[in-house]
Structures are given as structure tokens and as C-alpha cells.
């Protein structure tokens, strides 16, 4: 059954991708991209990658789409007719594709447990991590402990993206002026949004602290929390949102998150372990692991929340500006 669902979803993805190639309405392109993301996240669920699906849904389908829409609001929604010939790109793509197909011919069969990928390193994560790290969610164990350095880098990437967007678009000034913006005329929206935003926030925090037991963790939590504020900004307008969460605060939070993560690693050094070694954080290695993971997940959550939100602020302030003029 799983294979069948996989096939159907992949087919839908293929059709969507094909359609995107030929669409000239960029709004439609972006919306279809949202669908693409959603569907691929479904595939992730189907292929047992629940954490990935969680992230893809929140980050890929959610944030990326919102940012793309924000860009479109400023750049216009029609793609101009393409003047240059599509022959060369087509050729490049065909050659690349042919190379990939050639590469698949020696690949291990899909789904076979005997595949080398599932044999060498992975078994230890599956069999030992619940004892070594003490968490039922192996993805979190690998993410936050075995490969914590990757994750530190990932946090830094998010931080870097925030720096990039800040330098390009700047942050909105926190203003008392009640510019008529947001979906003011949508009474229903305002009321519903006000009702669900607190729930979303609590949900985000729940995801933050339950990444050990189920899908979730700092990244997803940060994104969801940011999404809640984004919803607020969409409905009530950016000026109000910046009064609730100040841009300056976001800058500090984004930095603090990375620092919290890195400081946990450095703490390992001072307790006599290697960088990011949590075993030494407490007398019992497993307890140490637990402490370390909670703290770094918190750092991730803070950075991701602040970074995503400040990125959104950057885009929204531009849109707001364009709207006023």
C-alpha cells in the first residue's frame, strides 16, 4: 500500500512540476509550489520520515510560500514571454537527467533493508541510541547529539539568512502610527485569528519540548511560533505586529539562540569532554545527554523563531512601504 501511495503522490508531483514549467502567472506558480511542498511532505510521511515531513510542511510549504508571495506582491505576478531559446537548457537537463538515470542502474533496490545505506552506520543509531542518548526519537538523537555539529551549522545557516535579509531589506521601524493595513475589513478573520494564535503558540512550545518523544523539535517549533506571529501580522498588519514583538528583540534573540547552542558545546570543553560532548554535563551520561539536547533544542528554537520572523518582517516592511506609496 505504501508503495502505491508513494507512486500516486509522485505522479501528482510530476504533473504539478510540469504545469509549473509552463505557467506564466507567478501567483499560480507559487501556489502550485505550495502544493508541491505539501505533497512531497506527504511522501515523507509515507516513507516514515515524520520529522522531515513536519519540517517540510512548516518550512517548505509554509515559510517559503509566504516569502514568495511577499516577493510577488512587490515584483508583479506575470512572467514576461521568454525570448531566448530553450534548447540549450533542455539539452543540459537531458544530459544531466541521463547521467542520473545511468547512476540509478547500480543503485540498491528501493526499500530493501539489506541496502548498504541501512547497514553500516544506521543500525547503531537504531539499536544503541535509545540507551546511549536515552530518547525514543532516533532522529532527534542523531540530530542533536551524534551529528550535533551539523545542526549547529544549520542554526548558523538560519542565522546567516537572517543577516542576509536584514542587510538587504532592513527591519521595519517600530511605529505607533496605525497605518491602515492588514486585512482590517475581514472581521471573521480577525476574530478567528485572535482565537487560534494563542493555541498555535502553545502548540509550538509543545513541539519544542516534545521533540524527544515524537516528531518535532527546535526547528519546527521555531517555525510554527513564527508562523503564529506571521498570521497576526497578516491579519492585523505589520505595525501592530512589530509592537507585539519588537524587531530589535528579534535581532538579540537570533544571536542568543546561536550562542546558547554554541555555549552548550563549549560547556562540554570545560567539563573535560570534546566540543558538543553532553555526556560530561551531568554525572550520568544519559542525563547529560538529556540536558544538552534540551538546551540546544531551545537554542535552535529561539534562533529559528527570531530569524524566520525577522526575515518575514523584512519582506513585509517592503510590501508595506510599496503599499503606502
Amino acid at each position: 500500500m505504501a508503495e502505491l501511495i508513494d507512486l500516486v503522490l509522485l505522479g501528482m508531483l510530476a504533473i504539478t512540476a510540469l504545469r509549473i514549467i509552463f505557467l506564466k502567472d507567478l501567483f499560480a506558480v507559487v501556489m502550485l509550489f505550495g502544493i508541491y511542498s505539501f505533497l512531497s511532505a506527504l511522501i515523507f510521511v509515507n516513507l516514515d520520515a515524520v520529522d522531515v515531513a513536519f519540517t517540510e510542511a512548516a518550512v517548505g510549504a509554509g515559510i517559503a510560500t509566504v516569502l514568495m508571495l511577499g516577493t510577488l506582491a512587490l515584483t508583479g505576478r506575470k512572467e514576461k514571454a521568454n525570448s531566448h531559446t530553450a534548447l540549450l537548457p533542455l539539452l543540459v537537463v537531458i544530459v544531466t537527467g541521463a547521467a542520473l538515470i545511468y547512476g540509478t542502474l547500480d543503485m540498491p533496490p528501493f526499500g530493501d533493508p539489506e541496502n548498504p545505506a541501512n547497514q553500516h552506520v544506521a543500525p547503531r543509531y537504531i539499536e544503541e541510541s535509545p540507551q546511549e542518548v536515552g530518547l525514543p526519537n532516533m532522529v532527534t538523537s542523531v540530530l542533536a547529539s551524534y551529528r550535533a555539529f551539523d545542526t549547529l551549522g544549520e542554526t548558523a545557516v538560519v542565522f546567516a539568512a537572517a543577516i542576509g535579509v536584514l542587510s538587504l531589506l532592513g527591519l521595519p521601524k517600530q511605529s505607533q502610527a496605525t497605518i491602515e493595513s492588514g486585512l482590517k475589513s475581514h472581521l471573521v478573520l480577525r476574530v478567528v485569528a485572535k482565537l487560534i494564535i494563542p493555541l498555535i503558540l502553545v502548540f509550538a512550545l509543545y513541539v519544542q519540548f516534545h521533540g524527544d518523544y515524537g516528531p518535532g523539535g527546535g526547528f519546527q517549533a521555531g517555525v510554527i511560533a513564527a508562523a503564529a506571529i506571521i498570521l497576526y501580522a497578516l491579519v492585523f498588519g505589520l505595525p501592530l505586529a512589530t509592537q507585539v514583538i519588537q524587531p530589535k528583540l528579534l535581532k538579540i534573540l537570533a544571536s542568543m539562540g546561536v550562542l546558547i547552542y554554541a555555549a552548550t558545546g563549549v560547556a562540554g570543553l570545560f567539563f573535560g569532554g570534546n566540543f558538543l560532548d553532553y555526556n560530561v554535563l551531568a554525572s550520568d551520561p544519559v542525563a547529560g545527554q538529556h540536558i544538552g539536547i534540551i538546551v540546544i533544542e531551545f537554542g535552535i528554537g529561539v534562533t529559528v523563531f527570531a530569524a524566520i520572523l525577522s526575515i518575514f518582517y523584512g519582506f513585509a516592511s517592503q510590501a508595506e512601504r510599496a503599499n503606502i506609496q
Binding site: T55, M68, A122, I126, V139, V142, G164, V165, V304, F315
Partner: peptide
């Protein structure tokens, strides 16, 4: 259980991807 390692890698890659997207759009 399915192999958790690719999941971890892709979690990272997704975040990297959206970071790049954000900068590109900006």
C-alpha cells in the same frame, strides 16, 4: 525502523534550502 540518518540530513538540508530561498527572494 527506517533509517533515521537520511532524515537528519534532510532536515538540515530543508532549513538550508529555505535560508537560501529567503536570501534569494530578498
Amino acid at each position: 525502523y527506517s533509517n533515521p540518518l537520511p532524515h537528519v540530513l534532510i532536515l538540515t538540508a530543508i532549513v538550508v534550502g529555505v535560508a537560501t530561498t529567503a536570501v534569494g527572494l530578498a
